[in-house]
């Protein structure tokens, strides 16, 4: 499972999920999203995939940085 989070951190297991998908290409292609996102989630074994800029449908159409991560837990 792939997640788009606000910011990837190895220090914190809780990250704020903006979007998620089983398919990395699908997740990568969605670059205009509601930046209120899905909410916080606890990850056990996440790994960084890539950084990507997205455009928010809310917040006046602001652009923001995001990180795509992979959840390696079972």
């Amino acid at each position: 499972m792939y997640y788009r989070v606000k910011r990837f951190s190895r220090s914190y297991t809780n990250m704020y999920v903006l979007d998620s998908d089983n398919s990395l290409p699908q997740l990568r292609s969605r670059t205009t999203i509601d930046c209120a996102g899905q909410g916080p989630k606890t990850f056990i074994d996440p790994s960084f995939v890539e950084a990507q800029e997205v455009k928010c449908t809310n917040l006046g159409g602001l652009k923001r940085d995001s990180d795509i991560i992979k959840d390696n837990s079972i």
């Binding site: 999920v17 998620s20 509601d34 209120a36 996102g37 899905q38 909410g39 916080p40 989630k41 606890t42 990850f43 056990i44 959840d71 837990s73 079972i74």
Partner: peptide, 15 residues
């Protein structure tokens, strides 16, 4: 795996 309680808002899943 740790799962977070969420609701499904017309296909959008939100914690």
């Amino acid at each position: 795996n740790i799962k977070t309680l969420q609701y499904d808002d017309a296909g959008i899943k939100r914690a």
